[in-house]
Design a protein around this nucleic acid. Structure first.
Length: 285
DNA sequence: CACGCCTCCTGTGCGC
DNA sequence: TGCGCACAGGAGGCGT
């Protein structure tokens, strides 16, 4: 499932091909309708960048032409922003054809001014596409209150320690919550907790362990970006290739296999309604 | 307010 | 072999 390293890898491939393109037309599958919001407003706008915050792709879209008669709640003369969330199974591909045979489950497509199509494929339909006024994320609650980027200076030991101290949630739920740090999903939460030797159900993470967790999140995310993400099943990049991080996972999906630190078989359980794997010897509450 | 449970959605993989 | 069902999970919504 696309987490920060996967979305960043997509962003890096998307940016050179999409930056500067004008969107001529758009189509999306209206089921389920609430996962698409004001998408028509991107028509007649130029995509001036491909940015990322957490697991969200943010594409600033400035008006270049009066749009056709489609009514949206975005002022046609104002700068807007196309916001994409890939959900669990979303992927993006370019094609010369609006419905190429090798791309299934196309839920949305943009026609660009170079006559190519950007296709949004999403088998499980958990992805979201919105157009919002530039910088106005109030309609996307998680994005509006998103925590610091894990590799930025805004993500600090002190901030993470304070956040963990002030919450009653489990360590894993706190990592998944996108507020203390953004971009961490189920895979990298398990990986970071394993590396920091913290039990996913721990509710007491002091300063020392918070410092370990801070460093672990950074190490795990940076290494996964270096390998262009983890392909377990669905995730693929814009060029159709898989990420190379799956072979390096220490915890996620490894239940029953020996912990590489101590040899104890890794244990599978459920924490925060998510499948969770941890080492019962290394990771103590 | 904030935590945590439920829901959405469908391809996959397992058991019988 | 084929069917049926549990399972996977990001984030919004809502109840406690």
């Amino acid at each position: 499932m696309p987490e920060l390293p996967e979305v960043e890898s997509v962003r890096r491939q998307l940016a050179p091909a999409l930056t500067g393109r004008v969107v001529r037309d758009v189509w999306w599958d209206p089921h389920p309708e609430q996962r698409f919001s004001d998408v028509d407003a991107v028509v007649g706008r130029r995509l001036t960048a491909v940015d990322r915050r957490g697991k969200y792709l943010l594409l600033p879209a400035e008006p270049v032409a009066r749009p056709t008669s489609r009514l949206t709640s975005i002022d046609p003369d104002d700068d807007a922003e196309l916001v994409l969330h890939l959900g669990m199974t979303g992927s993006l591909r370019f094609a010369d054809d609006p419905a190429p045979a090798d791309v299934t489950h196309v839920r949305a497509r943009l026609l660009l001014d170079d006559d190519r199509w950007l296709l949004f494929s999403d088998p499980r339909r958990f992805g979201r596409v919105s157009v919002v006024p530039a910088g106005d994320h109030s309609s996307i609650p998680t994005l509006a209150s998103l925590g610091p980027e894990p590799l930025s200076d805004d993500f600090t030991v002190a901030g993470l320690a304070r956040g963990l101290r002030d919450t009653t949630a489990t360590a894993k739920a706190a990592l998944l919550g996108q507020r203390l740090v953004c971009g961490v999903g189920n895979i990298y939460a398990d990986e970071a907790l394993w590396l920091a030797r913290i039990h996913p159900r721990s509710r007491r993470v002091g300063r020392e362990r918070a410092a370990r967790l801070h460093d672990a999140v950074r190490v795990v995310i940076a290494a996964a970006i270096e390998r262009e993400g983890t392909t377990f099943r669905d995730y693929q990049m814009v060029n159709g290739e898989s990420g190379r991080n799956a072979d390096f996972l220490e915890a996620y999906g490894q239940q029953g296999l020996p912990c590489s630190r101590c040899g104890t078989p890794l244990r599978g359980t459920v924490v925060a309604q998510r499948g969770t794997t941890y080492c019962p010897t290394c990771q103590r509450i």
